Computed example of a mutant assay.
Amino acid sequence: MFTSPSSLDLPTGPRQIFEKSTFFLRNPRAQLPTPAQVRAECKAQGGNYGSARPLPVRFPHLGLIVKFGFVVSITEGQCLLWLKQLGVVRVPEVYGWTTDRVGYNLEVFLYLELIPAVSLKDRWRWLSRSNKEHIARELRVIMDKVHSIPPEPGEVYIGSIGKQPVQEDIFASYTEAKPGPFTSLSSFHEYLLCYFRQPPQWVDPDRHLLPDDVPIQFTHSDLHMGNILVSPPLPWSKESLWMAWQEWSRNRWSLIWVWRALWWGTWRRMECGEPRVVAILDWQQSGWLPSYWEYCKAMWTADFQPRSWGNKYLPMILDKNDVFCVWGDIAAAAGI
């Protein structure tokens, strides 16, 4: 039986440190890096600090990664806490979060578990057809479980965890509040079309293509290869050496993290060699959305992945639908 977010009494404050998390059990004397230390390390790692989406900062010796920026939200931390409780999918453990103001911008810092694994994107070129099909079948089972998570008791809405607004990047205005939550599919669709396509007084000719009778389901909303962690390759294989070389060309901290992941895989032999799904990352945009949304968003981002991912393997993971054409027009208007 699933536990609703409201029954967990999720923390909401601007600063939360979870002293009973495994971070403090492993490192009793350690402290989480301050925002200033995270920013300094981001610059040292070449993490494009100053952009809207700086690269997460890794602290391999602490088993820690910090996701931060003014488009990062506490909502994602709450969602990860809840998903960790449910156990339907492995996600990074949350060690805490804090906020810090820089000029007019409020940056959120999420302190997360650095899972010793590698992205599916990094392993894809080395995988055989049977490996890829195996991963697709694993993802199908995982995503079916995610999509079966019901909304809070007595409440059917479109929005993020805890009846909060929709966090989807399609509404990626950094100056306006996120929309919602919406109480019906029809109100969500009307807003969607008016926001991107037509003035409110016009009737959009594509309105009938957005169905108001589909289920509302919990959605990751950013399922691409970079957000899927898989088990690392065997150390000293051609694949692992190539990955190490690629990371060395980026920065030394990434190289340390990759080798830590590879040796972790050797120690836990069931996690190395034959690839398997280890975790799914980046739940920033997740929430309850129309059932067609997951497939449409994944297909949209598939343009930036190897062609076989969208053509062959995504249809094995997610159910196809006929909404993608009009959804793609809306996404193009949004500029995502």
Rank of each mutant, 00 (worst) to 15 (best):
E93R: 14
E138Q: 05
E168H: 07
R307P: 07
N251E: 02
Q167W: 04
E176N: 14
L185Q: 09
K178I: 02
D169C: 09
I158N: 09
K20V: 14
G103W: 02
P199D: 00
N48K: 11
R90A: 07
L127D: 01
I216F: 05
T34C: 03
T22V: 06
D100S: 05
G13A: 09
S130A: 08
A177Y: 13
M225V: 07
Y313T: 08
G265Y: 08
G103E: 11
H61N: 07
L106K: 15
T175P: 01
F324N: 08
K84I: 01
S254I: 15
Q167D: 02
W126S: 13
S7D: 09
I74D: 05
E168P: 05
T99Y: 00
K178M: 03
Q246Y: 13
T99I: 01
L8G: 00
S21Y: 00
P92S: 02
G46Y: 06
W257Q: 14
S130W: 02
I228F: 05
T75A: 06
M225S: 10
S286W: 04
K312D: 04
A333G: 04
R53T: 13
E190I: 00
P235R: 13
Y195D: 02
V108D: 07
R125A: 15
W242D: 14
K312I: 07
G46H: 05
L83Y: 13
S128T: 12
E239K: 09
Q16K: 10
P153Q: 09
Y157S: 06
G310I: 10
H208K: 10
S237D: 03
F304T: 11
P215E: 12
G310Q: 11
W82S: 11
V203T: 15
Y157V: 06
G159N: 04
D213I: 10
H189S: 04
P181Y: 04
G335R: 06
G273H: 03
D206M: 14
K145M: 06
Y49R: 12
I336S: 13
L210E: 04
D169M: 08
L127T: 01
V214S: 12
